[in-house]
Design a protein around this nucleic acid. Structure first.
Lengths: 152, 152
DNA sequence: GGCATTAACTGGAATGGTTCAAGAAAACGA
DNA sequence: TCGTTTTCTTGAACCATTCCAGTTAATGCC
C-alpha cells in the first residue's frame, strides 16, 4: 500500500504536503517538527508551520507515524510503526537510533507491580553516548536536562 | 544524613527554599516545577519561580533529586534516587507511580543491539490507565500527545 | 466535468514551561 | 566581622506547540 492509499484508508485526504511529510520522515532519522517542515518545503515549496503540526497530528493519530519525545528534545517522528521497537538516545548530541524489541509486541515488558494500572505499552529508552560523540572526546553531556545549575 | 548535610556534602549552600524543595518533593508525588513552587511558598513565603528552577537544577545535578519527563507532561521531580526504579504513567490523568526495578541498578536492561553506544541507563515507562481513571469511565486519552487532529 | 461539502491550510497571535541576564541579598570560610 | 561567591530577585526572552478565524482545495455525487 502506498502512502496515498494509506492516507485514504485512514480516512484522511491526500495532499502534497502530507505525502512529502511521510516521505521526509521515512528518509530522515527521527526528525522533529522543524526539520520535517524544512524537508517538506524543499519538496513542495511553501507549507505553513501549522499545516505541518496538523498533519503530524493527523498522521500520528492514524497510526502512520509514531511520535517519540525523549527528555530534553522536541518531539520526534518516525515512520516505523506496527512493531514495538525501542530507542537509543545519545546524551550529548540527542541522536536517536532504533533498537529492536525482543518480543516485538506491546507491552513487551511486565512491571514488577502494576498498582492497578491497565498497562498497554512499555516504552524503553536506552541512554548513552553515540560512537561519534564518544570519539569526539569528553564534552559535557548536553542532553541531561536539569543538571546544570546557573552558577556552575 | 539530613538534607542540610546532604546539600553541604554536594558543595551546595543550605537555604530555606532548598530545604523546603527537598521536603515538598519527598512528601509530594512526582511534582512538577509549578507544584514545587507552590508547596515551597506555603512553607517559606515568597520564593521566585527562577529560584525554584535554579534549585531544581542544582539539586538534580547534585544527585539529590531525579528529574523525569514523561511525554506530554512538564518535567517532574522525585526524591527517590540511588536506585533505578521505573514509572507507571496514566494516559488519562498523567499520574506517575513508581515501580521497582528488578535489578535495581542502571542500566538494568541490555538492548538487543548497542549500535556502538556506550549505554549507562535503561529508562522504562509503562503506559496505561490508573485505577481511578479506569473506574471513572471511558474518557478519551488525554496523555497521548499528537493524536488529536484539529479537524476531528 | 461541475458543484457542494467539509477537511486541510494560511497567517497571525497566544500559550506554557523553561531559560537568560543583571543586579541585590544571603551563606560561608577566613 | 568581612569578603567572596553562590543564590535569589525581577523582568524579559525563548522555543515548541496550540488556538483562532478565515480561505483554499480534495473528495463524493450528480
Amino acid at each position: 500500500m502506498d502512502d496515498a492509499a494509506a492516507l485514504r484508508a485512514a480516512g484522511l485526504r491526500v495532499t502534497a504536503s502530507r505525502l512529502a511529510i511521510l516521505d521526509a520522515i521515512r528518509l530522515g532519522n527521527h526528525l522533529d517538527a522543524d526539520r520535517v517542515a524544512r524537508a517538506v518545503r524543499e519538496r513542495v515549496g511553501h507549507v505553513s508551520t501549522q499545516a505541518v503540526y496538523d498533519s503530524l497530528h493527523a498522521l500520528t493519530g492514524a497510526g502512520l507515524l509514531r511520535r517519540i519525545e525523549p527528555a530534553g528534545s522536541p518531539a520526534r517522528y518516525e515512520a516505523r510503526v506496527g512493531d514495538n521497537h525501542h530507542h537509543l538516545v545519545c546524551r550529548r548530541c540527542g541522536e536517536v537510533t532504533d533498537v529492536d524489541c525482543v518480543t516485538g509486541r506491546a507491552p513487551c515488558l511486565e512491571p514488577s507491580q502494576t498498582h492497578g494500572y491497565d498497562i498497554d505499552e512499555a516504552e524503553v529508552v536506552f541512554w548513552g553516548v553515540c560512537p561519534e560523540c564518544r570519539s569526539a572526546g569528553a564534552a559535557p553531556d548536553a542532553r541531561t536536562p536539569g543538571a546544570t545549575p546557573r552558577g556552575a
